[in-house]
Amino acid sequence: MTMLYFVPTPIGNLKDITYRSVEVLKAVNLILAEDTRVSGKLLKNYDIQTPMLAYHQHNEHAFTDKIIERLKNNEDIALITDAGTPGISDPGFLLSRACVENQLQMTCLPGATAFVPAIVTSGLPNDKFVFEGFLPPKKGRQKRLQILKDESRSMVFYESPYKVLKTLKDFKSTFGGERLMSVSREISKLYEETQHGSIDEILELYTDQKPKGEFVIIVKGLD
Rank of each mutant, 00 (worst) to 15 (best):
L165G: 10
R153D: 06
D150P: 06
P136E: 04
A114I: 07
P137T: 10
Q142F: 05
V130G: 03
E159W: 09
S122L: 01
K143T: 05
L168V: 00
V120T: 15
R153L: 01
V120I: 15
F134I: 11
L168H: 00
V120D: 06
K149W: 01
P117W: 03
P161R: 07
T167K: 09
T167A: 02
V116H: 08
V156R: 00
P137V: 05
T113V: 13
Y158I: 06
S160V: 04
A112M: 13
S160H: 02
S122A: 13
Y158L: 02
K138I: 01
K169M: 05
V130P: 00
K163S: 14
Q146D: 12
S152P: 02
Y162G: 04
Q142C: 02
K163N: 15
L135P: 05
K139V: 07
G140E: 12
K128Q: 15
P125K: 08
Y162N: 12
Y158F: 15
T113H: 00
P161W: 01
K169R: 14
D127S: 14
A118W: 01
S152L: 01
S154A: 12
R144L: 11
V164N: 12
L165W: 03
G133Y: 10
V120G: 12
K163L: 11
N126Y: 15
K169D: 06
E159Y: 14
E132R: 14
M155F: 05
L168P: 04
E151W: 02
V120Y: 11
T113A: 15
V120M: 15
P117A: 02
T113N: 07
V116M: 11
F131Q: 04
Y158R: 10
S122P: 07
G133A: 13
L165S: 08
G133Q: 08
F134R: 11
I147F: 01
Q146T: 05
N126K: 11
Y162A: 14
L145R: 02
S152W: 00
P136W: 04
K139Y: 11
G140S: 09
R144P: 08
T167I: 09
K166C: 03
D127T: 14
R141N: 03
N126H: 14
P117C: 11
Q142K: 15
F157W: 11
K143E: 12
V156Q: 05
K163G: 13
K139R: 14
L148I: 09
G123I: 03
S122C: 00
M155Q: 13
F157N: 10
Q146K: 13
S154G: 05
E132Y: 14
M155S: 00
Q142A: 08
L148W: 06
P125I: 05
D150A: 08
K139C: 01
F129N: 09
F115H: 08
P136F: 06
F131V: 03
K143N: 01
R141T: 01
T121Y: 10
L124T: 11
K163F: 07
K163C: 14
Q146A: 08
L135R: 07
G140Q: 04
P125N: 12
L165H: 13
I147Y: 06
S152F: 00
R141C: 04
E159L: 08
V116D: 07
D150G: 00
S160K: 03
F129K: 00
Y162W: 09
K128T: 12
R141H: 06
